[in-house]
Amino acid sequence: MIDFIILGIVVGISYGLLALPLSLLFIATGTVDFALGAYAVVAGLVCFLVGGELGIAAGVLSATLAAGIVGVISRLLDHKRRADHLTLVLASFGFAIFLESLVLSTYGEQPFVRHSFVDYWDIAGVRVSPQAGIDLAAALVVLSATFALLYATPVGRMMRASAINPLGAILTGIPVQWMRALTFVFAGLLAGVAGVLYLYTSGLSYSSGMHLALSGFGAAIIFGLKSPLRAFLGGIAIGLVEALSNGYLPSHVATVVPLIFIFIVLILQGTSRTLSGGRA
């Protein structure tokens, strides 16, 4: 039992890492960027190719730049005034396809991974790579940084205001468009951090972006998109459900259980809004 829980938390952290920027984007712009998984892949690849400490910085930077492009696209879509939030979601799908193909044509199909630890920790009989500890620490740092940014700085207040009531925010002199662009870039930064951690944890390949984005979104949405902390905990919850069902149920049932779990939580949100904390 305890070993599956530890395993679940380790997997859950990696889901939570992408759930965090997704939730941040939703809070500040009211929309979702499905190319986040692709930024993580780009960050991982750049980090892998450059190598060393410089590689980590280069990886995070490349993801931030890629996110900046989507920020510009969102600005262009807003300019048209007719676009709704779903149009940006579809455009971000387009950008994810673009990045996936870019990674495929520059690097190829083989996965890229890097292990920096030879010794493993032994927690309650489970071999856990110390990398999981680094992931958890990084996740907590990123989480607190996000909270500090959103709820303790003027920029964060402006971000939240632009999301809740764009017109009102414009009237009080908040540069709403800049706030939105800034949020995209910041989410890209977080996705870049996640991508570098993935590279050192379980590795990435050109096609993992969409899967990462979808599982991150599933994680972010179950406890409500409106809080980064809930999004992160959602990731851990899904990791736990996945590990426990893998441990105790026959394999073909086990793969369905986490999905049914998300589906049921979503349906429950539709009937009672208490779980989600307002409409997500």
Partner: peptide
């Protein structure tokens, strides 16, 4: 009936989960 009360984005994800469940059921 189940998904229509949800907001647009959540609804899309709920249908996505449904689609994945169908795919896994067909596979197993």
């Amino acid at each position: 009936r189940l998904v229509s009360p949800l907001s647009p984005l959540v609804l899309a994800i709920a249908t996505l989960m449904f689609a994945t469940i169908v795919e896994i059921l067909l596979r197993s």
